[in-house]
Write a protein that binds this DNA or RNA. Structure first.
Length: 577
RNA sequence: CGGUGAUUAGCGCAGCUUGGUAGCGCACUUGGUUUGGGUCCAAGGGGUCGCAAGUUCGAAUCUUGCAUCACCGACCA
């Protein structure tokens, strides 16, 4: 895929568009890879498409190698399938719905479990046809409430999604493992620094799940690692172990202390000159209720140490807590406690109380008094707060003991670029997707699903590979492998001839070369190819031509050397890929 | 969806406080100049000032409504 710049749409920008906040978004705009069409929707310009296609090609090769078979499903899907799986009601506005001219309901596919399950139940009827792993690389649409960071969190995006079908858990696990390996191969080949981590299964359901994260400080997810084992998990999933030290005995009596205008933990901590870890915060959330529940919404109190953060995934998985997690309104808090949010506490509270494991070992702690502007000191569990339960509710923090039992936890940021799930029978059962087994009996299939965020990978790769001049692509996904940059070609016949000859030779050698034949000043050309991040640059100039040489520059290392034109093509061939 | 802010030429911005019919840099066109790191000079083209209504002799500027976009939060395979 060779190209002359004069016949190409380079569209680089000298200035950074105001809307782009993170570096990958800025560089994708500046390098002429994408343009925004609407919030969360982007046009890919030629350079963007090139990178996208290279990522796709690697994903496709590794999927094929792992035994998956490519299909292509419609992006627009009939509502009936979603009603059948139950997600028509379960998913909210993220699922974009619309009607066709016959007033029939459709959705823009945010994922394809329903369509693939429908396909497989129609096409597959015998256990002999299993296992089966089908994938596609296709555009998805999720009507995100807050699209941001360019293609990192777009509403329309490109994804590889695969779905496997089995008759036994054992068989599913085998494919799951094969996908795990394939994903490691994909991200390794892409040249990214990544980590597979244990993950929460979220709304999609299922038992076992791993996410693949590209490590980057701009990542939206917090990933925790053990410093002494290979344990790694999304913070949503990482268990905070119960403290091993027992709770000290109470030494103080309960006393009221005036805390006017001190609502937050930080304010109370400063006012009373007490560490945040000795204060307990009380969060009121909606309790789970039966569908036919009437009357006021019952609440549940969640208690955490002042210096700890609520883990919402853990909270909403706790029995009796409404899912999705819903915080009580100010009015609801007032009705139950008689105070506003900054001054509430568990003492004498008329609702169910769940205490985080770490908060549960505090003695003589401070909490709100359920009276505005008043806190209590010297509060103790069992003596002052009875009728409570203990659960793991908080996010782990750096230095916590690892749940694997070895070492302590380190926290890093990650960008989720892959996610694999053991789904089980959830969709197959809801949609009655089964086959005849060896005994001739109808049996529901068990499923796995495996996603790779293709367009997100492009942004993640830039987050991990850039410098002050622009993008420093990993070799495997650079839009071009080599940039041929002649100096003042229009003034020098021999430069032009050399450049044209090299262009032909590199093309013949199968190298992805961009020939910059624009009538531009050298500085403009250099700046563009550095912005674009082409890994290998060949500069042809008068002063080296006398020795039949050209200058080579490596984009990532900055290394420059003079090379004889004679051996150049072979030399480059051994360097690229 | 809540909070905050923005919207003036393709991009980045000034002008608005104090109303008088729009400007700068980059980009683009033409001519010259320069030529191994975003040249310099000159001349040009390009704007319903987000939309709608109101106030006014007169609105980019003041008022109201709406839309879009962004950020923070919530949300999230």
């Amino acid at each position: 895929m060779c190209m002359r710049s004069s016949q190409y749409l380079l569209s680089t920008l000298r200035e950074t568009p105001a809307e782009a906040e993170i570096i990958s978004h800025q560089l994708m705009m500046r390098a002429g890879m994408i343009r925004r069409e609407a919030s969360g929707m982007y046009t890919y310009l030629p350079t963007g498409v090139r990178v996208l296609r290279k990522v796709e090609a690697i994903v496709r090769e590794e999927m094929n190698k792992a035994g998956a078979i490519e299909v292509l499903m419609p992006m627009v899907q009939p509502a009936e399938l979603w009603q059948e799986s139950g997600r028509w009601e379960k998913m909210d506005a993220e699922l974009l719905r619309f009607k066709d001219r016959h007033q029939r309901d459709f959705v823009l596919g945010p994922t394809h479990e329903e369509v693939i399950t429908d396909l497989v139940r129609k096409e597959i009827s015998s256990y002999k046809q299993l296992p089966l792993n089908l994938y596609q690389i296709q555009t998805k649409f999720r009507d995100e409430r807050r699209p941001r960071f360019g293609v990192m969190r777009a509403r329309e995006f490109l994804m590889k999604d695969a779905y496997s079908f089995h008759l036994s858990q054992e068989c599913l696990e085998k494919t799951y493992q094969a996908m795990y390996t394939a994903y490691c191969n994909i991200f390794t080949r892409l040249g990214l620094e990544f980590r597979p981590v244990q993950a929460d299964t979220g709304a999609i359901g299922g038992a076992v799940s791993h996410e693949f994260h590209v490590l980057a400080s701009s990542g939206e997810d917090a990933i925790v690692f053990s410093d002494a084992s290979d344990y790694a998990a999304n913070i949503e999933k990482a268990e905070a172990l119960a403290p091993t030290t027992p709770r000290p005995a109470a030494t103080q009596a309960v006393a009221e202390v005036a805390t006017p205008n001190a609502g937050s933990i930080a304010e109370v901590s400063a006012l009373l000159n007490v560490a945040a870890s000795q204060i307990v915060k009380t969060l009121l959330v909606h309790a789970a209720v039966a569908d036919d529940h009437t009357g006021p919404q019952p609440l549940v109190a969640l208690l955490l140490r002042g210096d700890h953060e609520l883990n919402e995934v853990k909270a909403e998985k706790t029995a009796g807590v409404k899912s999705p997690l819903t915080f009580a309104s100010d009015a609801e808090i007032k009705a139950v406690t008689g105070a506003s949010a900054g001054s509430i506490g568990p003492v004498g509270l008329a609702c169910r109380v769940i205490v985080d494991r770490s908060a549960a070992v505090l003695a003589d702690f401070i909490c709100g008094a359920n009276k505005d502007g008043v806190h209590l000191t010297g509060v103790n569990f069992d003596r002052d707060v009875t009728n409570y339960e203990v659960a793991d509710l908080r996010n782990v923090v750096e230095g916590d003991p690892s749940p694997c039992g070895k070492g302590s936890l380190v926290i890093k940021r990650g960008i989720e670029v892959g996610h694999i799930f053991q789904l089980g029978e959830r969709y197959a059962a809801a949609m009655k997707a089964g086959v005849l087994n060896e005994e001739g009996k109808h049996q529901i299939m068990t499923m796995g699903c495996y996603g790779v965020g293709v367009s997100r990978i492009v942004a993640a790769a830039i987050e991990q590979n850039h410098d002050e001049f622009g993008i420093t692509w990993p070799e495997a996904i650079a839009p071009f492998q080599v940039a041929l940059v002649p100096m003042n070609m229009h003034k020098s016949v021999r430069i032009q001839e050399t450049a044209e000859q090299l262009y032909r030779d590199l093309q013949a050698a199968g190298i992805d070369v961009m020939f910059d034949d624009r009538k531009e000043r050298p500085g403009v050309m250099f700046a563009d190819w550095e912005l674009l991040g082409v890994p290998h640059q060949i500069v042809i100039g008068e002063r080296n031509l006398d020795n039949q040489q050209v200058e080579y520059k490596n984009r990532r290392s900055g290394e420059k050397e003079l090379l004889d034109i004679a051996g150049l093509v072979d030399w480059l061939k051994s360097r690229v890929k």
